[in-house]
Amino acid sequence: MMEATIQFTVNGQRRSVTTDPARPLVEVLREDLQLTGTKVGCGEGQCGSCTVLLNGRTALACQTPVAQADRQTVLTIEGLAAGATLHPIQEAFLAQGALQCGYCTPGMIMGVAGALLDKPQPTAAELRAHLEGHLCRCCGYPRILDALERVAELTRRITP
């Protein structure tokens, strides 16, 4: 196997990894960069647990060869909070108790982050549509919907 050097920006930091360019991005994040907040729930693009932002758009990191991230910008759940200050999406999930085991939570939150970049003032229903590809096996969907309501309401308070 030929290795390649991938240079990209991850959570605001320049990173360089020399590796097989076919490796899924999620494995490079988790195994090389110690960013284990991004989860693997299925490896087949069916659960959304590995959702990250690639150049500001949601991407399934289990379906994205790391080569596609070369010279691009990746944001993972670890990069969402500003230091100890949670991002409002994280605050909303926490405040609404929108997690049980929490394994789907980083992917859900990054899915919402991607939806907000797509449309800054979405309705809760639009956010929900964005998350249709995300699974919560604890089936805590009602609480997650509460969190989406809260996020949608927060965005409505922002004057563009």
Partner: peptide, 18 residues
């Protein structure tokens, strides 16, 4: 609420696979 909820929303809790 879940005592370690903050770690879960931040992605810093280490699950067994982490």
């Amino acid at each position: 609420p879940r005592p370690n909820g903050r770690d879960l929303v931040m992605g810093t809790h280490a699950f067994p696979s982490d």
